[in-house]
Amino acid sequence: MSEHSPYLLEARSLTRSFGRNVALSGLDLRLAPGHIVGLLGPNGSGKTTLMKLACGLIKPTAGEILIDGEKPGPESRSKVAYLPDTSYLNDNMRVSDIVEMYADFYADFDREAAFSLIRDLKVDEKARLSTLSKGTREKVQLVLVMSRRAKLYLLDEPIGGVDPAAREYIINTIIGNYHPESTVLISTHLIYDVEPVLDHVLFLKEGRIVMEGGVDELREQSGKSLDALFREVFRC
């Protein structure tokens, strides 16, 4: 048994550099269960780096990151549902094969929920991924991730490259499948669309958190929407 941590994600002086380029610099962060957290920042601010560190794809240069009290590894990956910012599925596979594969590897995967969401998308289960449009493929990937009953969801730019209708679908899927014991971390630079869905935000700038807080508190204090606040913080 690992020591019990009240935080699903905890970072202490987390630093990661790539050569001379420092992507994250001394980040301290704690995420408790039951929140939808926005990780907001322009491109290159370290959002993807933080997500990759959280699922153990890369290792910290200094400091540490803990998932539910333990270092990222096979054990933590069974609790973390990660949606990368790329198309990461084998194009030759059929939609149903991929659903079965997820069901095979992740004990927390809700197979029925996944198939029902796929049907909602009007995607043919027997279709190979290579025959689907880019937007549909992104939705299928999101369905796979959100059909897990994970503790921590890491969604890297889930609404990045899709049209407004798809954005609506994606946001609905995230709320509809979120459950109160888990936490969702959504990275994006399109704040306007996700703002009402978030209850907590982190503004990331050049590898540091420059502002953090509850969405309504920030709106109350500044009298501005987060979108407007974001433009102010990141003004060039």
Binding site: G56, L57, G73, R77, T86, S87, L89, F105, Y106
Partner: peptide, 13 residues
């Protein structure tokens, strides 16, 4: 390749 994002985030060593 990009499929590595899936393979290295599965609960395997």
């Amino acid at each position: 390749g990009q499929e590595g994002y899936l393979m290295f985030t599965l609960p395997v060593t």
